[in-house]
Design a protein around this nucleic acid. Structure first.
Length: 224
DNA sequence: ATCCAGGCTCAGA
DNA sequence: TCTGAGCATGGA
């Protein structure tokens, strides 16, 4: 079943889900049950939004991106695509990522990645793909946040921000908020709320509302 | 042209 | 532990 059809059937906001912070990778050949999990249908986002609504500064962002859901993304494609995203612009790295066959990553050489526009990240990718072979997703999923982040950061090209993205999108750590350039801009406007929001149990979800609002819609939070 | 992009690595303090 | 330069390369 196609992901898009699943979204239509279940009244999901395809647009918001694709344009928030997760790098959307079209899931190939998923069953309805698999898509149910992929789109995180067992999580009640109305409840999450209700909790985050305690922050007045988030009202506009939540209203705009109310359809956002945090996907359950496959671990390795998530790592690879976020390594490529670092210090890169969205248009460009999207084009690069679309060329990659995530089911056959081991076949690529450094030159292959360079040709696909990965720039100086090409050697990181080859090295990380090798190291990922020895990583046990099951083991990683049992680590706490700090342990998991530390483990992920042993991968070349993975620093704190990329690690947090992987934790949020592949390990569903909803309390982890990736701090990127957009969020840094927001933190100034959020003022004293910023620290509290970034340490909230749903900080990662809040970050997605903010990212979507800033990057995609308004460029500034418009806080009164 | 020139600066920047969903940062990271590495050296030096 | 902290700071900053340098990084490939297309987009704006």
């Amino acid at each position: 079943m196609l992901a898009k059809d699943f979204c239509e059937q279940n009244n999901l906001d395809w647009y918001a889900i694709r344009n928030c912070g997760q790098i959307f990778i079209d899931p190939p050949d998923m069953s309805y049950d698999q898509l149910w999990h992929y789109f995180d249908m067992d999580t009640n986002y109305n409840e999450i939004k209700k909790e985050l609504a305690e922050f007045n500064v988030l009202h506009e962002s939540i209203k705009a991106g109310g359809g956002i859901r945090i996907l359950h993304q496959p671990f390795i494609p998530c790592v690879i695509s976020f390594i490529i995203s670092a210090n890169n612009n969205i248009k460009r790295f999207t084009k690069t990522i679309e060329q990659i066959d995530f089911d056959n990553l081991e076949k690529y050489t450094q030159d292959d990645f360079t040709r696909m526009g990965c720039g100086y990240r090409a050697p990181y990718l080859v090295q990380s793909i090798q190291k990922l072979r020895d990583m046990d997703t099951q083991y990683l999923s049992n680590l706490n946040n700090n342990e998991l982040r530390k483990a992920l950061m042993t991968l070349p090209g993975v620093g704190p921000k990329v690690a947090n993205c992987v934790m949020l999108f592949a390990f569903h750590r909803l309390d982890v908020a990736p701090v990127d350039t957009w969020i840094n801009k927001a933190i100034d406007q959020l003022g004293s709320s910023a620290v509290v929001i970034m340490n909230h149990p749903y900080a990662g979800v809040a970050q997605q509302y903010i990212f979507y609002y800033l990057q995609h819609l308004h460029k500034t939070l418009h806080i009164a």
